[in-house]
Structures are given as structure tokens and as C-alpha cells.
């Protein structure tokens, strides 16, 4: 039996694909190509012309102390955003999984932050923790914390991590909850009869069975922290104080549009593209072998 759709007109399939292809070409391949090309050019100081310089933009980058520092900053930022948002989400999901009454309300409330744009989330957190007018900053000062994220780089980092992680909790929560609900109740009951207490059941049964979800979320969260947190950084710290919250995507922006170093900015974009590519490959590889227990 021929199950595939067959077309009489040889042009029709291509026509049907065209809109999708067009969107991909215009919004992905074309700018990506531009970035690739740009990364090999060195514009003159007045932006009137450009010289083809091969890989010297890249060479320059890898000798740039600030670029390497941005890598470290990104690693720290990504590590904590992923860790915090996943841990908190898992904790809430475990609680929600046990709720019988009012589970719907609980879930809906937990999903709301996902609808908030990163920049808005940033502004919200900024207000709450603004040293002079912020509600929470007020209480922190009352508790004797010397709170000043505008000057203190560790505090600034903590703040952007908190805001970025907060926004991602909903997403992780949904997936973790779905993952938890897919675990047959009888497994937990069997473990309870076998003598396992709550924590032991979580550690030896629930967590291992959640590992496909956890791995998927790990990749998604890394990608999020790497690429989608620009709004949070931009509204809250603008990369400061003293570059302490300048992550890689933010540096692309600040070097290119603020510093007007388009060649370097393009080279940084290319490096980021490679990173996304690698992450995507890891994820696809994994999804192919989804059941790994």
C-alpha cells in the first residue's frame, strides 16, 4: 500500500514548502551568512568600507581577556540559572504531584511567570531589589545585608541569575510535573512496601525515571541561559557593574552596537552559532535514544 501522498504536479510540493523555506532563508540563513561574512571583515573607523582580513577577528577575540572573561561569566551564569530553575521547578512539581484538591489552581499560578517577557521580568526584579525603592531590598537592609547590586558584582550576578531562573521555573515545572505523572503510582507503592522511605524512593525510583525529562530540560535551560536572557541582563545591569554580568550574547550586542566593532561582534555571533549547533546535536543524539533505562 502506498501510504505517502503523491503529487501529479511536480511543482506543487515545492510551492507548498516555499513559505516555510522562505521564512527560514530570510530570517536564518541570510543573517547567518551575513554574520559569517562580516566576521571575516574589518570595517574602517568611519564605517565607509571594509577590508577582508580572514580570521583575524577570531584571533583577536581569543586573545582578548574580556572575551575569555565573558566565557567564564556565561558559564557561571548558565550553571546557576539552570541549577536554580531546575531544582526549584522539580521541588514544586513533586509537591504539585501530591496535591489532590486545587491542583488546577496551583498549576495555573505556577505557569504564569512563563507568560512574562524576559525584559519585563528583569524590570520587575529590578524594582523589587532596587536599593533605594525596592520592596525586598528594604527588608534585606532591615536584615542587615549591605545590599547594593549596582556596585557589588556578586550581588548583581545573584540578581540576574534569580530573575532569569525565576522566569524559567514555570517551563521546567510543567515538564517535570508531566514526567512525574507518567511514573506509574504502583512503582512508588511497590517501593514503599519494599521499605523505602520518601527520600529513598525519590532518589532510587523517581529521579532515575525522570532522567529523560531532566536531560531534555538541561539542554533547553542551557540554551535559554545562553541565548534568551539578553532582556534580563539588558534591563537589570546592562552587563555591569564592571562587565561582571556581561555574558556572551550581551557582549555581542555591546561590542557591535555600542562599541561599533562589527567585525568582532559578527565573529562572536559565529562562535555562538557553533555552540547552539553543538547543543542541538547533543539533544538530537539523545532524543534518538530516548529510553535509556
Amino acid at each position: 500500500m502506498e501510504k505517502r501522498v503523491t503529487f501529479d504536479n511536480r511543482l506543487l510540493p515545492y510551492l507548498l514548502l516555499a513559505p516555510q523555506l522562505l521564512v527560514t532563508i530570510v530570517f536564518f540563513f541570510w543573517p547567518a551568512g551575513q554574520a559569517l561574512y562580516q566576521s571575516l571583515l574589518l570595517p574602517d573607523p568611519f564605517g565607509l568600507g571594509a577590508r577582508f582580513v580572514w580570521f583575524s577577528n577570531f584571533e583577536y577575540l581569543f586573545n582578548d581577556r574580556y572575551y575569555l572573561q565573558a566565557f567564564v561569566t556565561t558559564a557561571v551564569f548558565t550553571f546557576f540559572v539552570t541549577l536554580v530553575s531546575m531544582t526549584v521547578a522539580l521541588f514544586f512539581a513533586v509537591l504539585a504531584d501530591q496535591v489532590i484538591k486545587g491542583a488546577g489552581v496551583y498549576k495555573t499560578l505556577l505557569i504564569w511567570p512563563y507568560a512574562v517577557a524576559p525584559a519585563v521580568a528583569g524590570v520587575m526584579w529590578l524594582f523589587m531589589f532596587q536599593p533605594s525603592i525596592g520592596v525586598l531590598a528594604f527588608y534585606m537592609k532591615a536584615l542587615g545585608v549591605n545590599w547594593n547590586p549596582v556596585l557589588d558584582s556578586t550581588q548583581a550576578m545573584t540578581l540576574v541569575i534569580a530573575a532569569a531562573a525565576w522566569k524559567q521555573i514555570s517551563y521546567n515545572f510543567l515538564f517535570f510535573l508531566a514526567g512525574l505523572q507518567a511514573i506509574p503510582k504502583s512503582l512508588i507503592e511497590a517501593a514503599a512496601i519494599d521499605g523505602a522511605g520518601r527520600w529513598h524512593r525519590f532518589r532510587t525510583i523517581i529521579f532515575p525515571l525522570l532522567s529523560p525529562t531532566t536531560f531534555f530540560l538541561l539542554v533547553v535551560n542551557i540554551v535559554y541561559a545562553f541565548f534568551e536572557t539578553f532582556g534580563v541582563i539588558h534591563t537589570m545591569t546592562a552587563g555591569g557593574p564592571g562587565r561582571s554580568t556581561t555574558i556572551l550574547v550581551y557582549k555581542v550586542f555591546s561590542d557591535g552596537f555600542v562599541g561599533q566593532d562589527l567585525g568582532s561582534s559578527a565573529a562572536q555571533s559565529v562562535i555562538l552559532m557553533v555552540v547552539v549547533g553543538l547543543l542541538t546535536i547533543i539533544q538530537f543524539r539523545f532524543i534518538e535514544r530516548r529510553v535509556h533505562y
Binding site: P184, S186, L187, E189, A190, A191, A192, I193, D194, G195, A196, G197, I205, P208, L209, Y293
Partner: peptide, 20 residues
């Protein structure tokens, strides 16, 4: 008493084997 304090063992309809 909790299940584990009752000194029982149970076989479930769907076996409830730990798949991992």
C-alpha cells in the same frame, strides 16, 4: 503503620517492576 512497618509483600497487576 506505614506499609514498610507491616512486614508484607505485594504483587501488583501490572507487576510494578522498577524499569531502570
Amino acid at each position: 503503620l506505614e506499609p514498610r512497618e507491616r512486614d508484607i509483600a505485594m504483587v501488583f497487576q501490572n507487576y510494578a517492576l522498577y524499569p531502570h
